[in-house]
Computed example of a mutant assay.
Amino acid sequence: MFSFFKKKEKNNRDLFRARLKLVLDEIYNSDDHVQITIGKAIYMADTIFQQTFPTPDDFVNLPHHAKLEYLNQFSTARMNIEEKTGSKLYALGFEIYEMWLGIVSVKDKALFYEFVDDITFFCDIGEEQ
């Protein structure tokens, strides 16, 4: 009976992974403007995160409800940024970072190591601009 829940969790994780990979692959195959805009958003999101949590462990060690509250606030900020800037690309950069925070919050080491280089790559592009 409980194996049903494990299969569902694995399927959700696999879908999450596939979606993030697909989006990142599309961005890698996009022109410089797209990569730079998304990189700026990821860099901005990372800067905001680091102002609140000087180390990732400060976030990871929060109680579950506090992590969810922060992720909800982050999601609201993303929607406000899209509304104010009118840039779907900028909002996408924030959404990617939000997905990244989800990976960090559940301590999924496999996904962390699979995507850390991608997040770093786009964050570095954003910082350079």
Rank of each mutant, 00 (worst) to 15 (best):
S3F: 07
F5E: 00
K7T: 00
K8H: 00
E9M: 00
K10A: 08
K10G: 01
N11T: 01
R13H: 04
R19E: 04
R19G: 01
D25Q: 01
D25V: 05
I27Y: 02
N29D: 15
D31Q: 09
D32S: 14
D32W: 13
V34T: 15
Q35M: 07
Q35K: 14
Q35F: 08
I36K: 12
I38P: 05
I38V: 13
G39F: 15
G39I: 09
G39N: 03
K40P: 00
K40E: 14
M44R: 11
M44P: 00
M44T: 11
A45V: 02
I48D: 12
Q50N: 14
Q50C: 04
Q51W: 03
F53L: 05
P54Q: 05
T55G: 06
P56C: 06
P56V: 10
P56A: 04
D57S: 15
F59N: 09
F59R: 07
L62C: 08
P63H: 09
H65M: 12
A66N: 10
K67D: 09
K67T: 07
Y70A: 05
N72H: 11
N72V: 08
N72K: 14
S75W: 08
T76Q: 12
T76P: 00
T76F: 13
N80G: 11
N80T: 04
I81N: 08
I81F: 14
E82P: 09
E82L: 15
S87I: 13
S87N: 15
L92K: 13
E95T: 14
I96H: 03
I96N: 07
W100D: 03
W100E: 03
G102I: 04
G102N: 08
I103N: 05
S105H: 05
K107E: 15
K107L: 10
D108T: 13
K109W: 13
A110P: 03
A110Y: 06
Y113F: 12
E114R: 14
F115S: 04
V116F: 11
I119C: 01
I119V: 10
T120Q: 09
T120A: 06
T120M: 02
T120Y: 09
F121E: 02
F122H: 07
D124A: 10
D124P: 00
